[in-house]
Structures are given as C-alpha cells and as structure tokens.
Write a protein that binds this DNA or RNA. Structure first.
Length: 267
DNA sequence: CCGTAAATAT
DNA sequence: TATATTTACG
C-alpha cells in the first residue's frame, strides 16, 4: 500500500549487510566486564595504526574466574571502547534511521542494542561524528577534501545524504518506526547469548584463529595499568545482555525509559 | 538527559 | 605529538 512505508523498511533491510554481519557486532562488544575477567596480556602489543581493517583480539588465557563475582559492572571501569568500522556502521545506521532530530545518545544506544555499550560511549562518538560531518561540509564539498587519519573510521561508513543537507525532510516527516526491523538481531539473540557464554573459549582461541575466523570481534581495549585480578562470572554477562533483549519493546513504547523486562543498569 | 569542553590514555 | 575515548560541567 504505502510505498514509502515499505520503502524505508526495505531500504533498511537492504542497507543491512546481512544478519551475519550484525551478529558478530552484537557479540563484538561482549561484556566488557567479562573481557576484563580474562584480562589482556602485557602492555606490549603492536597496534597497527595504518590500516587496521579487522580488529584482532590479542588476548591471553590469563584470567581468573571466580564464582564470587557478582555484578560490579556498574562500578567497574570499563575498558576503553574501540569503535570499529562495524560498530560505527551500526551507529550510522541507527542515526540515519532515527533522523538527526531523534538521534540522541540514548535513542541511538537503544537502537544499536549493542551489549555493553553505554550512553556515554554513544554520546562521545556522536559528538565526534558531528564534528566530522561539519568538517566535511566545510572543506570537502568540491573535490579536494582532505581527510585526516582520524576520519578514516567515519569514512569507512557511507554518510547518509540527509545528514549533510537538512532539507527539512526525513527527520520530521516520519519519525521513528514503531517497530524496527532488526529481526535478525532478535533471532540471533539466543545464539548471541550462547556465544557470549562461550566467551571464555573465544578469548582463548582469539589468538590462533586461522583463516577466516567466525568474526573479528572482541575489541576491548585493555587497560594495561591496574586491575589485573578482576573476577567475573557468567551471570554478569547475562544481566548485561538483557538490555539487548528488548530494545524493540523500548522503542515501540516510544517512551524515554521503558524497560519491560528487567533493569539492566542506568535509569 | 543532552551537548560541549577539558582530561586522560594510548 | 596527535588522536581516540572518557570524564566533568552547564
């Protein structure tokens, strides 16, 4: 019936690489806390800064899993979040479909539904992204557009046209769809959870992934400073992933803070 | 909570 | 040093 309606939907679906592409993303962020549990190796890890397409995980099997860990996820310092192209892609998609107007940290975060991702993370990235967009309009309009190294990440994801020119459409015309077609995510939710539980093995094998690993996720930046004896348990990851569980519900409600199932954190 | 600026880590 | 991400403020 409404071509437009089915259009945006189809478009979204089309833009979405494929369920598979998204799956790894969900687990990519894995519960930081869990990752911490494994803790990463010594402070001497050569990090390619020229062209790091896939983020490899350098993790050692040096972790201490104790059954005493509860859910310190709240007070624990999360590792520095590394924004990978994939993660950024998801970010852009979310913003694009939300419309600049509704593209606020919280909403974006909810839409992304990436476990472990905090509002602050998104806010920070959004800030930088906006700067990038501005910079682009300013000096990249005709051909000689000098992009700094920092822009590479942003460049990795196509910038929706309406991002640059607010023709007074797209953002106010149709607001957030009542239901977001990230069915793939929902479908994989169980899998994703399963994976997460296997995080331990994951981390261990991260080092010897030959050929095409199932995914090059797990980009937790490690903190090579303190916290070497962080204990974490599976329960933690569980309660964390719950956030992903029903982001759709949240959105559908259209409310600002509606958690149907159980509170994950914040709020 | 959102946006911006300063602080800090890599 | 420069840059990416976090933390502090209004």
């Amino acid at each position: 019936m409404r071509e437009e309606d089915s259009n945006w939907f189809a478009k979204w679906e089309e833009e979405l690489p494929s369920p598979e592409e998204l799956i790894p993303l969900s687990q990519s962020l894995i519960t930081p806390d869990l990752a911490i549990a494994f803790d990463l190796r010594s402070p001497n890890q050569p990090q390619p800064q020229t062209t790091p397409p896939p983020q490899q995980t350098n993790s050692s099997a040096e972790f201490a899993v104790d059954s005493s860990g509860d859910e310190p996820a709240r007070t624990l310092k999360r590792p520095r979040l590394v924004w990978t192209p994939q993660l950024h892609k998801r970010f852009v998609d979310a913003v694009a479909h939300l419309g600049i107007k509704n593209a606020v940290p919280k909403t974006i975060m909810q839409l992304m539904s990436v476990d472990g991702l905090t509002r602050e993370n998104v806010a920070s990235h959004l800030q930088k992204y906006r700067l990038y967009l501005k910079r682009m309009q300013s000096g990249g309009g005709g051909g000689g557009n000098v992009v700094g190294e920092s822009d590479h990440l942003f460049a990795s994801s196509p910038v929706p046209t309406h991002f640059l020119h607010p023709t007074g459409r797209q953002s106010s015309d149709h607001f957030i769809p009542s239901f977001v077609p990230i069915a793939s995510l929902q479908h994989h939710q169980p899998q994703f959870l399963h994976r997460q539980l296997s995080a331990v093995n994951f981390a261990s094998q991260a080092n010897n992934n030959n050929g095409k690993a199932m995914d090059q996720s797990l980009f937790l930046a490690r903190q090579s400073q303190q916290q070497q004896q962080q204990v974490l348990t599976r329960p933690a990851s569980l309660h964390l992933h719950s956030q992903v569980a029903n982001y759709a519900d949240d959105l559908e409600q259209g409310a600002n803070t509606v958690l149907t199932l159980f509170p994950t954190r914040e709020n």
